[in-house]
């Protein structure tokens, strides 16, 4: 399976999460939609799509949470017939990131949640102070996204 990262510091925690939680697909991204690392995707266009949709779902869930509970929802689980999706916020010192994980019956929600907690702790320890502050500036967004995808899929 293809594993690639745009930032070196996310590699060890993400790899450990993928190995232990036995997920089929995983994408780590900024809330803006910028990809930081991925596992399981073969094409950059799929990663780009997954990031855009994940960022949108995360933003919608956050706003919905603010309306309902006065604070953003930080995690989401969807159980399909054969595959399940887990989307959650990864808090780090400089802000937060988003993790999308897709798994089948080789894993379970409980196992994914368990190792997600360990992943968050590992990310907090590994993250540099400026890790979550980057892009989201409209002018730079596409260039940054393409740069990250090129680094991950070997066209840098």
């Amino acid at each position: 399976m293809k594993f690639s990262v745009a930032e070196n510091w996310v590699e060890a925690p993400l790899k450990q999460f993928v190995d232990e939680a036995r997920v089929q697909l995983a994408v780590l991204l900024h809330p803006s939609g910028q990809v930081l690392g991925q596992f399981g995707f073969a094409r950059s266009v799929d990663v780009m799509t997954a990031c855009a949709l994940s960022a949108a779902i995360h933003a919608s869930a956050g706003e919905l949470g603010r309306l309902v509970e006065g604070k953003p929802f930080t995690g989401l689980h969807y159980a399909g017939k054969a595959r399940q999706l887990f989307l959650a916020q990864v808090p780090i010192a400089a802000g937060s990131l988003v993790l999308l994980a897709v798994f089948d019956d080789e894993s379970s929600l409980g196992v994914v949640q368990l190792f997600f907690r360990e992943f968050c702790a590992a990310m907090r320890a590994a993250a540099p102070a400026s890790a979550a502050s980057p892009p989201a500036l409209a002018g730079d967004f596409e260039r940054e996204l393409n740069r990250n995808l090129a680094v991950m899929f070997g066209r840098a």
Partner: peptide
């Protein structure tokens, strides 16, 4: 409890 539950259910399955 959450760790035991998740891992034991996985083992049992």
């Amino acid at each position: 409890g959450t760790a035991f539950a998740a891992l034991t259910a996985s083992l049992y399955r």
